[in-house]
Design a protein around this nucleic acid. Structure first.
Lengths: 124, 124
DNA sequence: AAAACTAGGTTACTAAAAGTATACTAGTTG
DNA sequence: CAACTAGTATACTTTTAGTAACCTAGTTTT
């Protein structure tokens, strides 16, 4: 596949550079980040990688995210087709969230992010 | 390397699940996202991949980001040790930004994000 | 030589998103 | 019955993003 993000840069006589093809819309990186880069979104997807997880369990697994945040992110992820909500019991209402194929397709990126993140121990 | 993010889940007699080891702090994914996932940060790093780029050129390359945003992100990236600011000329002041080795180490993740993003054509 | 433009920002202000805390309904356990 | 769990909802505060105009200093256009 051709890299659609090539902005060419021209160097003038004084060694200064000029952009020739600027992006007139968010690039692929930026679009991708808006899908999986929002606060807690990557973590949510990653924590669903092995099996369906219940709402409150997911909240606890995330360390620091509030119920409201998890709720909002899950709704976005559902709309974006990355997660499916399933009611597994009605009285005691119980719900699980699991990844769709599309959601699963993002795991590779998140896995390399995790490895990178752990290998450069990042302070907060 | 051991996966530090394993939250084990126990299933009880009624088929309901409980988290045993919750994260008590942001996980590796979340920490990584806070370094490269902020709005415009990934794009900035990616656009510096080939050569040093000047401030206004970078702003134009990003499509939609304002100078203030680019300025703020660059300052953060500098503090985080991912980018270096270099004054290349004093009168006509000219500045370039380039990646450090650490900044460069994030390119692999961003490249797989780009490929993923382009292969699922994402709307806005 | 004045007018307009470029570079690299800064400032002041508004809008949107994140975060906190409390509450609710319905059921369950001690 | 009191306390607790699950899955939200609501109201409010704080933080972050975004817009627009401005500034200094040099450069090109007319």
């Amino acid at each position: 596949m051709v890299n659609k993000m090539k902005s060419s840069i021209k160097t003038d006589a004084k060694g200064r550079k000029k952009v020739l093809n600027m992006c007139d819309e968010p690039c692929a990186i930026e679009k991708g980040m808006r899908l999986i880069g929002g606060k807690w979104k990557g973590s949510i997807i990653y924590h669903l990688k092995d099996e369906p997880v219940r709402f409150n369990d997911l909240t606890r697994m995330l360390g620091g995210a509030t119920k409201k945040m998890v709720d909002q992110r899950l709704k976005e992820l559902e709309q974006e087709g990355m997660v499916i909500r399933k009611v597994i019991s009605h009285r005691p209402v119980a719900v699980t969230y699991e990844l769709t194929e599309f959601g699963r397709s993002a795991l590779e990126i998140l896995e390399s992010l995790r490895v990178w993140s752990e290998s450069h121990n990042i302070q907060i």
